[in-house]
Structure formats: structure tokens, C-alpha cells
């Protein structure tokens, strides 16, 4: 029987799916394909794709342990600050305890989490996604940020050439009135 192994990495975060059923992996690939293609890269690698194929003699070892007809979903543990480690909810717990309808609402919940739980006034998109991706399996891209800005929920500012965002008062009210669980 064949085995299928799918891995997605974003900076230091990684998820891995191992399955005996190709359909499971195909679903994961389809899920990532759209966001991968629509992702606006803010790096010098913009619009560049690296395609690497290995032939039949690839030395990579096959997965050693695979569950029959199931798959493993193994997001890495989110890093939490040492302080309040026992009481502070993770982002995934915080999202689950509130009302998220889609990636946009999850983004607003995450922005509230950063401001009120982590006590950080602002965040960069990279910092947000480092927490958001392991918690949700999705990435926040610039179009989503623009949507939140256009809705008047977040503000942005430039600092040392880096764009930083913060949930404003209207965004906090939106969370409290619409999304709080």
C-alpha cells in the first residue's frame, strides 16, 4: 500500500500529515494551493517559485510509522512567554473560546489576543502569522489586513521600514460585540 506525506512550513512553524489515503493529502494540498498562489510575498523572493523534483533514486527515507487510513496533524506547540505560562490561553484556545466564522474573524480575534492577552500594542504580519498559522492552519495575507483596515478595525504605522498593525477601539468593540464567546 502507498504512503503519502505532506509537509507545510512557515518560518519555524511546521505541520505534517502522513496518510495511507491519497485523498486526505489531496485535500490538504488543495487547501494550501489557493492560499499559496494568492499569497503576496513581501520579501526579495517576490514572485519567485523554486520547483524541486527528485527522481526515483531519492534518498529521503520513507515515513516509518503510518496509521492505517488515518492521518496525523502535528502543528508545533505555540511558543508562550514564560510569564503566566500556566494561565495564559494559547491562541488556538482563545479562538476556540470565541465566535469565529471565517479567517477574517479569526484574524480579528487574534489581533485582540495579541493586544489584550499578550499585552502587545502592535504586531507585524510576520509575527501574527507565526502564531496564527499553527493555531488555524491558515495565513493572514495583505488582502485580509486591507479588509480589516478598510472596515476601520485596525490601524497601521511604519516603523523602521516595517509596517506594524494594532487593533483600534472600533476593532475592540467589534470583537466584544460580535465575536466574544
Amino acid at each position: 500500500m502507498s504512503t503519502y506525506h505532506f509537509k507545510a512550513k512557515y518560518n519555524d512553524e511546521q505541520i505534517e500529515v502522513v496518510a495511507k489515503n491519497g485523498a486526505v493529502i489531496e485535500r490538504e494540498l488543495d487547501r494550501y494551493l489557493e492560499s499559496f498562489l494568492n499569497r503576496k510575498i513581501h520579501t526579495e523572493n517576490k514572485n519567485e517559485f523554486d520547483i524541486c523534483t527528485h527522481g526515483e533514486q531519492c534518498q529521503k527515507e520513507a515515513p516509518t510509522e503510518v496509521q492505517q487510513d488515518t492521518f496525523e496533524f502535528q502543528p508545533q506547540q505555540e511558543q508562550s512567554s514564560p510569564q503566566d505560562e500556566t494561565q495564559m490561553p494559547t491562541l488556538s484556545e482563545f479562538i476556540a473560546s470565541n465566535k469565529s466564522y471565517n479567517t477574517f474573524s479569526e484574524f480579528i480575534i487574534a489581533a485582540y489576543y495579541i493586544k489584550k492577552v499578550l499585552n502587545q500594542d502592535c504586531f507585524t504580519l510576520k509575527m501574527l502569522n507565526a502564531k496564527f498559522y499553527p493555531a488555524t492552519g491558515s495565513l493572514v495575507d495583505f488582502s485580509l489586513v486591507e479588509e480589516a483596515k478598510n472596515s476601520g478595525l485596525i490601524d497601521s504605522k511604519e516603523e523602521d521600514g516595517v509596517t506594524k498593525y494594532t487593533l483600534n477601539e472600533q476593532g475592540e468593540s467589534h470583537f466584544i460585540n460580535q465575536l466574544r464567546g
Binding site: S2, F6, K7, A8, H42
Partner: peptide
């Protein structure tokens, strides 16, 4: 693509 990397093996 940028910081995102996807790998499939089978």
C-alpha cells in the same frame, strides 16, 4: 514561495 514551503512525498 517566500517563507512558505510545501513538500509532498510518496
Amino acid at each position: 514561495k517566500g517563507e512558505v514551503e510545501i513538500e509532498l512525498s510518496s
